[in-house]
Design a protein around this nucleic acid. Structure first.
Ligand SMILES: [Zn+2]
Length: 283
DNA sequence: AGGATGACCAGGACGC
DNA sequence: TGCGTCCTGGTCATCC
């Protein structure tokens, strides 16, 4: 599932390949996945800015030279769980479940949006609409930037009585974490997923901060985690699934202590942890 | 307002 | 092989 490292990996490729290309045509196979009936008409003629970026799990493609009366727009893409953006070169085959296909002024390059479960969304937005996009406007800090730090985390957990797993999945606390990297971060920090935010000690919060940074940076370094058919923008699988220490390792021995990894539901999501390394109580 | 829960989406995995 | 059931998780709506 595309979380921060997967979206970041895609962004880095798209930034190199798509910057300054002009959209010449768009084929929409599944209209419900785009946000407006004139999606194609509004996009044709727009040039993709080299300021293409990521915010949380959103890919943001600012556009120049748009014909729209409301000025230049941004294409905001959320891949949800099974969405992929794949660059198609020359006669490359389209990925399975391709729902939207973009053509450019370079005829050798196309961009396919593919999504088995059709949860992802492509939203073409004016700057005003972008500022007001629910899910984007309330995002917490980027975990790999300086405004996310141990002090921020401590201040924002100290009053929270929800389970830490639930809090880390909440995009308004910190942006970009999903089920995989939350389980990995809690494992690395040796914190049980059902501990309450306000019950974490200062050293634990500090460890958690470093664990979040570590698992995300490792995920990016490894080109993302390929579970649920994730592939990057070049159609390649990542390698981070081979590095996971907790997620989907239920019934296997903990790499730290050999205890069997347990799987439970927390906040309605599968959660994997070591019952010996991640105790619910300090004792 | 914070927190818990369930719905939604659609296809894959699995059991029989 | 076919059919039914369960599973998956990011986000949002709803209720307390
Ligand atoms: Zn252990």
């Amino acid at each position: 599932m595309p979380e921060l490292p997967e979206v970041e990996t895609i962004k880095r490729t798209l930034k190199i390949v798509l910057a300054n290309l002009t959209i010449t045509d768009v084929t929409i196979f599944k209209p419900k996945l785009v946000n407006r009936p004139d999606f194609k008409e509004a996009l044709v003629g727009c040039q993709i800015s080299d300021q293409l970026t990521r915010r949380g799990k959103y890919l943001l493609l600012p556009l120049n030279k748009c014909a729209s009366k409301s000025g230049d727009m941004t294409l905001a893409i959320h891949l949800r769980m099974t969405g992929c953006l794949v660059v198609i070169k020359e006669n490359d085959q389209l990925p399975k479940y391709t729902h939207v296909l973009f053509y450019f002024d370079n005829p050798k390059i196309k961009l396919a949006f593919a999504d088995m479960r059709q949860f992802g969304r492509l939203s073409l937005l004016t700057n005003a609409e972008l500022q007001d996009l629910s899910g984007l406007k309330d995002l917490g800090p980027e975990p790999l930037e300086k405004n996310f730090n141990p002090t921020y985390l401590k201040n924002n957990l100290s009053s929270r009585r929800a389970k830490i797993k639930s809090l880390l999945l909440n995009q308004t606390l910190v942006a970009g974490l999903g089920n995989i990297y939350v389980d990995e971060a809690l494992y690395l920090a040796q914190i049980h997923p059902e501990r309450l935010g306000c019950d974490l000690t200062a050293p634990e919060v500090n460890n958690l901060y470093h664990a979040i940074i570590t698992v995300l940076e490792q995920g990016i370094q490894n080109g993302g985690t390929s579970i649920s058919d994730y592939v990057d923008a070049e159609g390649n699988a990542g390698n981070n699934q081979n590095m996971l220490q907790a997620y989907q390792r239920q019934n296997k021995p903990c790499y730290r202590c050999d205890e069997i990894i347990t799987r439970i539901k927390v906040a309605g999501r599968s959660s994997h942890f070591c019952p010996r390394c991640q105790k619910i109580k300090n004792s």
